[in-house]
Amino acid sequence: MASTGPRRIVVLISGSGSNLQALIDAQNTPALPNVQIVLVLSNRKAAYGLQRAAQAQLPIPTAYLAMQPYLKAHPGETRDDYDAAVAEIVREARPDLVVLAGWMHVLGNGFLDRMGEVPVINLHPALPGAFDGTHAIERAFEAYQKGEIERAGIMVHRVIREVDRGEPLIVKEVPIEKGEPLEAFEERLHKVEWQAIVEGTAKALGV
């Protein structure tokens, strides 16, 4: 059934939320028309992104659920049960799209099975097929120093069961400049991420 209301997004974060901020700034602009972030969920209580959500022009509801405290409070439950609990919080917000924007936890079947037809996308700081999983930026930088790669980059991709192997929606190369420190490369890469997360979200929603 076609809906004329805004497309509803849930964003999952773990840290500062700079990619979340890019989405907040883009919602209801030509970059992301007729879009509303309806929930920001963090797996870290101190994530600054929660404050960004609360301080948005129209404050965004937030939620927090971390795996270790959850497992401690639910003896006998597993990582999959935690993922299912995250999925239930997300589903209650009735999203049209779920965006993992710096979410530092690999979501398994407990999450994906419950999302059903709701698409899930992820921002990953590496090119398709390169440096899946954690610490991708540092690993790419190190590989460049060793002469193993000539370029690095980022992608926004669909989330499937295989980590960082879903269909890429947006791919952007970010050159590593000779002699630059890791921090400088990281800073340039993050600026590209802010643009890509908005473009990937728009593409996934078809707006």
Rank of each mutant, 00 (worst) to 15 (best):
V192C: 05
K146G: 12
S16A: 14
A26E: 01
E150I: 08
G179H: 09
V10N: 02
E167S: 05
E142V: 15
Y82H: 09
I160N: 11
K203L: 03
K172N: 11
H135S: 14
A202P: 04
E162C: 07
I37E: 00
V171F: 14
I137C: 05
R165Y: 11
V90G: 08
P181I: 08
S3W: 01
E92L: 13
K146S: 14
V174I: 11
T78D: 12
A143C: 05
R8D: 01
E150W: 09
Y64H: 15
A22R: 04
A202W: 00
D96P: 00
I197E: 02
V174H: 13
L23K: 08
V98K: 10
N109S: 15
K203D: 04
Y144H: 14
A73D: 04
A87E: 06
R114L: 07
A101Q: 10
E173M: 04
Y82K: 05
P168V: 10
A130C: 14
G206T: 00
L58P: 15
E148M: 11
G76T: 02
E173P: 14
G116H: 12
P6I: 04
A31I: 05
H105G: 10
K45D: 09
P168H: 14
V198C: 09
G206Q: 03
S16D: 10
D83G: 08
L41S: 00
I89F: 12
R44W: 10
A152H: 06
W103S: 02
R7C: 07
P95F: 04
I89N: 08
A84E: 02
D83N: 13
G200Y: 01
I89L: 12
P95T: 05
A31Q: 07
